[in-house]
Design a protein around this nucleic acid. Sequence first.
DNA 1: ATGAAAGCGCTAACAT
DNA 2: ATGTTAGCGCTTTCAT
Lengths: 328, 328
Amino acid sequence: MSVATVSRSFTVPASVANATRERVLAVAAELHYEPNRAARGLITGRTGNVGVIVPDLGNPYFHAVLKGAQARARRADYAVFVADGQESASEEEDLINAMRKQVDGIVLCSSRLPTAKLASLDNPPTVVLLNRRVAGRASVVVDSADGMKQAVRHLAELGHRRCVFVSGPRRSWSNQQRQQGLRAAARAHRVEYEILGPVAGAGGVQFQSGVETAEQVLETGATAVLAYNDLVAVGILSRLAELGVGVPEELSVVGFDDIPLAAMVTPPLTTVSLPTVQAGEAAVDVLFERLRSGDSVQPTSRKLPAELIVRSTTGPPPRRAKRALRSH
Amino acid sequence: MSVATVSRSFTVPASVANATRERVLAVAAELHYEPNRAARGLITGRTGNVGVIVPDLGNPYFHAVLKGAQARARRADYAVFVADGQESASEEEDLINAMRKQVDGIVLCSSRLPTAKLASLDNPPTVVLLNRRVAGRASVVVDSADGMKQAVRHLAELGHRRCVFVSGPRRSWSNQQRQQGLRAAARAHRVEYEILGPVAGAGGVQFQSGVETAEQVLETGATAVLAYNDLVAVGILSRLAELGVGVPEELSVVGFDDIPLAAMVTPPLTTVSLPTVQAGEAAVDVLFERLRSGDSVQPTSRKLPAELIVRSTTGPPPRRAKRALRSH
DNA sequence: ATGAAAGCGCTAACAT
DNA sequence: ATGTTAGCGCTTTCAT
């Protein structure tokens, strides 16, 4: 029996007689033989690998994305490379180049690269952007502007008239989306707002930033705070507890992302749930589509819905007298 | 100029005249040329990749491990494959086989595979175990037994005489280590203890398990609880807050792992800090050592120290009268 | 110090 | 339906 027949039994089963194929597969199983992917890739030009690059492997938001991406990839019998861009554009670029030949495509999560660079990346590999949208590139984004609108509406319905947004990194696409949503929703529901921050510390937007911003939030006199993400929100919550400020009696708090942490803190955090696992899956999905269709066709952009999860950190605003008392 | 010279410029720079090499490298840089790793691997037998398999990508403990592993690998210009074993032994085995040809080595984190299987895995690829020790296999373990001792000593010094351990999965190596440490420390410090659980729900030992165990903990009459991990501890904390039980006034709580969450909850959790990022780095380190030395030499086993981090969930036990009151 | 050539494990034409 | 063969991009003898 020739090597070609064996090869065909794996790659084009139909092209081989049933009996032969079964014999091949049986022996292969016994020998634990599996075609060497590297060698296969050398000739087919496809590696069977995808890469996922995130800005920070320490950030829970990306864990969920990674989990989704890995699961989806595995279902298609693809393996996934991960890399941590360390919040650095240049490291991210190096990573892309290092991966280039080893993968069929790359999912770039919340890329720190400038738009121009993103637009000019050459394929292969095919790249799919997550939480970023740039002309000519396939992408998956989460509708966080709408999430913000839901949050503001919720606050307005509770009676809040004045809120503050603790902003994330100014250049961040997601942050811009959220601010846009805020502007629109605030106008629609007649609530005033103020923006604090950005609060990005080293290593991304973190808990500590929230801790440090809590008092500034109090000083604004707002009755509700919307945080750029859950980590910041929980930081605020933590400092508020130290300060003895009641949540939500004295101040309502809303987060973003709905990372597992959000449900675990006391009181459980009201937050805008972003479908992160699904976003990871969708990104790989779009990647596969694109791999199939070729880079000639128009790249798709998928938008996933956000959903407000009301837990226990939001409630009616305090009565005026009480606030006035506090502020002195 | 021949391909051989180019190849040598990259792989054995010394074997090529300075002038030639520089010329090669210059042109390569200009063309963004990099040797194709797959093709190289085909002939050298080394891929330049390592695999990391974790039981659950959703578990914060493993994020830290992954972060460390990725960082260490990247420093050596290795790329890393990740895969999620989904807490399943068979999936884990499949993953190992799928990776086999694509990596030089695999880091197996808290493997769910039985010892016999682990011992009989064939190399290549070289495997390094994390949080598991089996004869003949290289491994990195964290001294969680000692961490447990530190925790018990701390409680004993505060005056606690009766505590309860909320156990993790019975078959888990780490869990066994912790129980062993507990037994020894309890005897040394004359502390009585009781074991509750195991509490493993679907998807590992989680927050929810803690929530569900909190009341059982109260019923034991113990003045302190040691949880298998931080997730469980935080679950207990959360339920306790709902129940209006003061921590640490009425009950002290100690976690394990020191995941970021531990510092973020209110009150901040006293916990045994395990050097997870370093464990990830160490595992890849050991892997590289082994790759260099060949599988003939005796496999090393590295043990990393644990350290108790005292935050705000531990304090002196309540006075008897108060407890007696509570229990009726 | 450099080049020529074999061959790593596989797939894809092209025979038969 | 199966076999033969070229060659993917590299490294590594073996010559020179």
